[in-house]
Design a protein around this nucleic acid. Structure first.
Lengths: 134, 134
DNA sequence: TTCTCTGCAAATAATTTGCACCCAT
DNA sequence: ATGGGTGCAAATTATTTGCAGAGAA
C-alpha cells in the first residue's frame, strides 16, 4: 500500500509536530480546522492511525478517555495527572530503568515506558482552595 | 457518603478478586451475570468507579480501548501486547526503577508504573503463520 | 489513468446518566 | 424511614466505516 502525502496528511503531521503536547484526535482536528475548515474529523482519525502504523508518529498507550498521539518517536516517559488528565514528558536517565534481568515472559519487546502518576501543581492548588472552603 | 455493601457490589468485588486478570467492565459483567442474571452493565460500571474511588480496587491507566480494573492494590508493573491488547503482570524488582533523582515537575506523586510493550508469544506465533502464507 | 484519500453521514463501541423503584443500614 | 443503589433505557463520547467523488502519483 502506497502512502500519499496529501495536504490534509501534511497539515496533520505539521500541527502535531508544532505542538509539543500529546494531542488527541479532536484537539488536533480543532487546530487543523483553522487552516482547512472543511477537513473531517474522520480524516484526522484515519491519518493518525496510518501515520502511527508507518512509524511517522507514535500512538501513546497512556489512558484517559482518549487516545493521544505524539510526534516524538523516541521512547520517553510521562507523568500523568490523575485529576485533570494532563500528560507531560518526564526526563529520566536511561540508568533509572534496567530491564536486562527481568523475565519478559516470551514477549518480543517493542518498547518500555515509565509512567508516573500524580497530581499536577495546578490541581494541587485547586484542591487546597476547595478544602479551604469546606 | 456512606458505602453500602450490596449483593451486586460484593459479587463484583469477589469476581474481580477471583480472576487474577485485569478485567474490563464488560468482561466482569459477563462473569457476574452467571450468578446474577438481572444485573445491569451500568451497575458494574458504577461499582467499578465507586470501588476504585474508595481504593478497594485499582483502575489501570493503561490504554487499549477499554478501561481495566485490578483487585491488586499494590503498585506493580505490566507487560502489554500491542497486537491483542493482552495485559499481564510483570515482576520486576524495586531496584529496577529509581525515581529519587528525577525531576517530577512539582507533581505530588501517587504512583509509578513501568509498562513494557511488546508482542506476546501467541501473537508471534500467529504472525509467523501469516508470513509463511504470503 | 489508477488507486488511495477525503468528506459526510451513519454505525459501533465504551461509558455515563435520568428516573422510578428497591433495599441495606 | 431514609438515602444510597439498582435496572432499564436513553444519552454521551470516542472512534470507525461505507460510499461516492476528488486528487496525488
Amino acid at each position: 500500500m502506497q502512502l500519499r502525502m496529501t495536504n490534509q496528511r501534511e497539515m496533520i503531521l505539521r500541527e502535531l509536530k508544532k505542538s509539543k503536547k500529546h494531542l488527541s484526535a479532536d484537539e488536533l482536528y480543532e487546530r487543523v480546522k483553522k487552516f482547512m475548515p472543511r477537513i473531517s474529523l474522520a480524516t484526522v482519525y484515519r491519518n493518525l492511525e496510518i501515520l502511527s502504523d508507518a512509524s511517522m508518529i507514535r500512538k501513546l498507550e497512556i489512558s484517559g478517555r482518549q487516545k493521544r498521539f505524539d510526534s516524538e518517536l523516541e521512547d520517553h516517559d510521562h507523568i500523568y495527572c490523575v485529576q485533570c488528565h494532563r500528560i507531560e514528558n518526564l526526563d529520566i536517565g536511561d540508568k533509572e530503568v534496567n530491564l536486562t534481568e527481568v523475565d519478559t515472559r516470551g514477549y518480543a519487546i517493542t518498547g518500555r515506558r515509565l509512567e508516573v502518576t500524580g497530581v499536577c501543581p495546578k490541581c494541587q492548588k485547586k484542591n487546597s482552595k476547595k478544602n479551604a472552603k469546606k
